[in-house]
């Protein structure tokens, strides 16, 4: 499911602003054209294209009767909205206190070494993105991760190594 989304996101690179406007128009029909739907609309666009292309901003602004600065301000305020596509797989490691108390730092070290990436980076071949997340709400069984859409608890460096091996294959 993740793979299809990202295949589309690669196609999305070549999509013209007109196509974004068409998708935005469809979303307005569905959600309405008030400012209050801005976050749901950005989530929907990101779900469809994998990221928020700068070319989407004018389309969204005009559909919701906002300035481009308003929309840009919202896109850049929220950590979830990305302005570049992700890798085909996404590994998110929890960095919050409860996971720290259970050894998250060692897991993070393993991930950065194994993938050769810093937190927040995507591998040059576009295969995997490594990200931090601040709490998944699984705080009694950490260290925790989300690998694509699957939550995984009680990760230690060895299990992470195996999970990353599966992704890289």
């Amino acid at each position: 499911m993740n793979a299809t989304r990202n295949d589309r996101s690669i196609a999305g690179d070549a999509t013209h602003a007109d196509d974004y406007a068409a998708v935005v128009a469809r979303l307005v029909e569905d959600m309405g054209g008030e400012q209050t739907v801005l976050l749901p609309m950005l989530h929907a666009l990101q779900e469809e294209f994998g990221y928020i292309d700068d070319l989407m901003v004018p389309a969204v602004a005009s559909a919701l009767n906002l300035s481009r600065a308003d929309v840009h301000g919202v896109v850049t305020f929220y950590h979830d909205f990305r302005r570049r596509p992700l890798g085909r797989h996404r590994v998110r490691l929890c960095r919050a206190e409860s996971c720290q108390a259970r050894g998250a730092a060692a897991v993070e070290r393993t991930a950065t070494e194994r993938l050769g990436l810093r937190m927040g980076e995507t591998s040059p071949d576009g295969r995997v993105t490594l990200d931090a997340v601040y709490c998944l709400g699984l705080c009694a069984t950490g260290p925790n991760a989300m690998i694509d859409d699957v939550p995984v608890s009680r990760i230690d460096p060895a299990t992470l190594d195996r999970l990353l091996g599966d992704l890289m294959r």
Binding site: Q35, T36, L39, V74, Y78, H79, D80, Y134
Partner: peptide
Amino acid sequence: VRVGAGAYVCGEETAMLDSIEGKRGE
């Protein structure tokens, strides 16, 4: 249901209201 977008500060009630209204969660 409204879904947040990774901003911890939106747990603050007035930031949450701004977020629901479609603004930066300030």
